[in-house]
């Protein structure tokens, strides 16, 4: 039997609900979806449809009100530490990159590795290797304000990969970029997936960005309205 066929999906969302304001605002209303390992999925839909809320739940930045989320077959609520989950299972990329402005590029990657098993020297090497993989070797000692928008987003991707996560969660990663930079970032995602086999879930408004994905999942009013079957496994 094919190993990929028996391996659990990267992400499984089962009937998840999320409400705010003591139940007055229902952001997610019974969302269910599955994302295969190594798949690149774009989550699309109008503003306020619940895309980012779902992404935050998957990143363990928030908890669902009801329902289950399984990551690589393990129930998210069963992870002993959400900090460890965020560090080792998923890598986050935000629209506004959320880098630390007082640090250099290489230091921004290194801080994400504090407390992992690598030595100080190993962390430095790993950070430089990641910067090289996102074509930022020549900018490693530049502080964030000195980087362009595209460079910052590439740096954010390098940081997301610091601890070898199997899943990259990206919230509007090209939303603040010009089109040339956006193309560069999407090329980078493509390359990362090819080289590292990571699963990518990307929330976007932008049709061009969404089209780069293997599969689109459409959301509206807190529900999944169109989710084609898992397209491929890597």
């Amino acid at each position: 039997m094919n190993e990929a066929a028996v391996a659990p999906p990267a992400i499984e969302v089962i009937d998840v609900e999320k409400t705010f304001e003591r139940g007055l605002v229902r952001a997610l209303n019974g969302v269910s979806l599955t994302i295969g390992r190594g798949e690149w999925v774009a989550l699309v839909g109008p503003s306020g449809c619940g895309k980012s809320t779902l992404l935050h739940l998957l990143a363990a930045l928030d908890r669902p009100t009801a329902g289950r989320i399984l990551v690589n077959g393990q129930d998210l609520s069963s992870f002993s530490s959400m900090d460890r989950y965020r560090r080792f299972e998923v890598g986050l990329v935000f629209q506004l990159h959320n880098l630390l402005p007082n640090l250099t590029a290489v230091q921004n990657v290194e801080v994400a590795m504090f407390g992992n098993r690598l030595s100080h020297h190993g962390q430095g090497e790993r950070a430089r290797e990641l910067l090289a993989s996102v074509d930022l070797s020549h900018r490693e000692n530049v502080r964030v304000p000195g980087l362009s928008g595209g460079e910052r987003q590439r740096l954010a991707i390098a940081r997301a990969l610091a601890n070898h996560p199997s899943i990259i969660l990206a919230d509007e990663p090209t939303g603040a970029l010009d089109s040339a930079a956006a193309v560069g970032v999407m090329d980078l995602f493509r390359r990362i997936r090819a080289e590292r086999g990571v699963t990518i879930l990307l929330v976007t408004h932008d049709k061009g960005t969404a089209d780069a994905a293997d599969r689109l999942i459409h959301m509206r009013d807190g529900r999944v309205v169109d989710a084609p079957a898992v397209a491929t496994t890597h």
């Binding site: 930045l61 530490s81 900090d83 460890r84 986050l92 880098l99 630390l100 801080v111 407390g115 610091a162």
Partner: peptide, 9 residues
């Protein structure tokens, strides 16, 4: 918040 999001305890 960023540091917590990237896994700081």
């Amino acid at each position: 918040g960023i540091l917590r999001a990237v896994g700081w305890s």
